[in-house]
Amino acid sequence: MGTLQLDVTDDARTRQAHQALAASRVFGRPWYEPPSFEETAIDWRYEDKAEPKEIWVAEDGGQIAGVATLYLPMEDNTWLAWFDLHVHPDHRRRGHGSELMERMAERAAKARRTSLITEFKVPVDAPGHEYRRFVERRGYALNNTEVIRHLELPVADAHLDRLDAESRLRWSGDYRLETHVNGVPAPLQQSLCDVMNQLIVDAPTGDIEFEPESMTPERYAEQIDVERRMSRERITTVAIDDTGDVVAYTDLVMPSGMPTTVFQWGTYVHREHRGKRLGMAVKVENLRHLQATHPERRRVATGNDGTNSWMVSINEALGFRVVELCPAYQRKLS
């Protein structure tokens, strides 16, 4: 046994790591579609200078049994690190997870981080789940919990029409909606980045207080290009005020290796433009575009903190149902 940093340029080793990752993610989750090797390899090989990542693996008999990905923000929230940990179900209870967790703590401490965060998916009805016990024994404390919901597609047009009509009573005439595929035009990118950067500040995050993120138009364009190379598609609907700035947005992302799944990424309304049902408006418009262009997709998956009553009410009105939980645990390093 032992841990080492993965050479992501080695196709054979990267494929082994992807297989362990996929087997772990799908375990006990029959609806889950793992990302393709090609998508994963492009993601792991992309060097984001604002948030570099390290891929570490645990070996068992020459085979990769576990994978941990460590993220180190460099331009915002530089006091923390966060990681994702997976061990192949066939190689569990042999110490691989423990070794990788300690390696993550060592690397985060070396990078002068004072807090280390991890999260994972568990069933709704399992408060004492083994994943929780595993991290709690290693000094992690529960910080907050997201509720994962699925929306089965298609949503009836009549239902979307009703929700749209109700929201338009509040915002029509003051804003316009635009939907873009694989990135918004350059004139909208700065104001979009401005609202994206506030999401982590305003969304409920338990006891952790985050500072605004540092997305820039240049970094946004880089990420869109990476998604293009991964054959992902991102659908973005924005609300634009009379100054021409983005004041609300929502993203739906379709990984190529997950042929029936759509991920709901960020949704945010600028605090000065709330109370006008713009959150519902952009979500409905995005769903309409999705269903018109991708009838093969069968579900949308999203996660929200259980205390985020505003977003939860929108999702419930759309028809999302609870599937699992995603607890986030924190370990203080100093």
Rank of each mutant, 00 (worst) to 15 (best):
Arg162Ile: 01
Leu169Asp: 03
Arg137His: 13
Glu130Thr: 12
Asp164Met: 02
Leu153Gly: 13
Thr114Glu: 15
Arg133Lys: 13
His150Ala: 06
Thr118Ile: 14
Arg132Asn: 00
Gly173Ser: 01
Arg107Ile: 04
Arg113Pro: 02
Gly95Tyr: 09
Arg93Phe: 12
Asp161Ala: 07
His150Met: 09
Thr179Ile: 11
Pro185Ile: 15
Leu169Asn: 05
Ala165Trp: 03
Thr114Leu: 14
Met104Cys: 14
Gly95Asn: 04
Arg93Leu: 14
Phe134Tyr: 00
Ala141Glu: 13
Asp84Leu: 01
Pro89Leu: 10
Glu99Trp: 05
Arg112Asn: 15
Leu142Trp: 09
Ile117Pro: 03
Leu163Ala: 10
Leu160Gly: 03
Ala105Cys: 15
His88Ala: 05
Arg137Val: 07
Ala109Val: 12
Leu177Asn: 01
Phe120Trp: 15
Arg162Cys: 07
Arg112Asp: 15
Thr179Met: 02
Glu119Trp: 15
Leu169Phe: 07
Arg132Trp: 04
Asn144Ile: 12
Pro185Tyr: 15
Glu106Gly: 08
Glu102His: 08
Val184Trp: 10
Tyr140Ile: 06
Val147Arg: 13
Trp171Val: 01
His91Ser: 03
Ala158Phe: 03
Ala165Thr: 10
Val181Asp: 03
Phe120Gly: 09
Glu106Thr: 11
Thr118Lys: 06
Tyr140Gly: 08
Tyr175Met: 08
Glu166Gly: 02
Glu130Gln: 08
Pro154Leu: 10
Glu106Trp: 13
Glu178Trp: 14
Ala126Val: 00
Val184Lys: 08
Val135His: 09
Arg92Tyr: 05
Phe120Arg: 10
Arg138Gly: 14
His180Ile: 06
Pro154Thr: 01
Thr179Asp: 09
Gly183Pro: 04
Leu85Gly: 05
Tyr140Ala: 12
His159Lys: 10
Leu163Glu: 07
Val181Pro: 08
Leu116Thr: 10
Pro154Ile: 01
Leu163Pro: 10
Pro123Asp: 02
Arg176Phe: 06
Asn182Cys: 11
Arg103Val: 07
Val184Asn: 11
Ala126Gly: 06
Ala105Asp: 14
Ala141Phe: 12
Thr118Leu: 13
Arg149Thr: 04
Arg112Ala: 09
Glu106Tyr: 02
Leu142Phe: 04
Arg112Leu: 11
Ala156Asp: 11
Arg168Pro: 02
Arg112Pro: 06
Thr179Arg: 11
Pro185Lys: 14
Gly128Leu: 13
Ala109Glu: 14
Val87Ala: 01
Asp125Ala: 14
Ser172Ala: 14
Ala111Tyr: 11
Leu177Pro: 00
His129Ala: 01
Leu151Cys: 02
Arg138Ile: 01
Pro89Thr: 06
Thr114His: 13
Arg92Asn: 06
Val181His: 04
Pro185Met: 14
Val122Pro: 05
Arg176Glu: 12
Arg107Asn: 11
Ile148Gly: 11
Leu100Trp: 03
Arg133Gly: 03
Ala165Gln: 07
Arg137Met: 05
Ala105Met: 08
Thr114Ala: 13
Arg93Asn: 06
Arg168Asn: 00
Arg92Ser: 04
Leu85Asn: 03
Leu100Arg: 02
Arg92Trp: 01
Glu130Val: 04
Thr145Arg: 06
Ala165Gly: 06
Leu142Arg: 05
Glu146Trp: 10
Gly173Tyr: 01
Leu153Phe: 07
Val122Gln: 12
Arg113Phe: 05
Arg138Pro: 15
Val122Lys: 09
Gly173Phe: 00
Asp90His: 12
Glu102Lys: 13
Ser172Phe: 07
Arg94Cys: 06
